[in-house]
């Protein structure tokens, strides 16, 4: 189990939280994903054997949020 925090571009719409969280939580290998709206961060706990940090970062980017 690994824990990684992604810093995103400043989040402005609260609906982004749901979008990112639900998409990530549906992804296999991800145990839990929490969006820290106010600090614009995503905290993800995942199984390294199923998914990598880069893959998660790609999913977030594909959703339309720049990962810094």
């Amino acid at each position: 189990m690994k824990r990684v925090v992604f810093q995103l571009e400043p989040l402005t719409c609260p609906s982004c939280i749901k979008k990112i969280e639900s998409t990530l939580n549906k992804t296999s290998g991800i145990q839990s994903a929490t969006v820290l709206f106010n600090s614009s961060k995503v905290r993800v706990e995942f199984d390294e054997q199923d998914i990598s940090t880069e893959q998660i970062s790609k999913i977030i980017t594909k959703l339309g949020y720049e990962v810094r």
Partner: peptide, 15 residues
Amino acid sequence: FIKAFQALRMKAFSI
């Protein structure tokens, strides 16, 4: 449109 499309591609609903 881009944001809408990006979300849709991930099967996510968006404003």
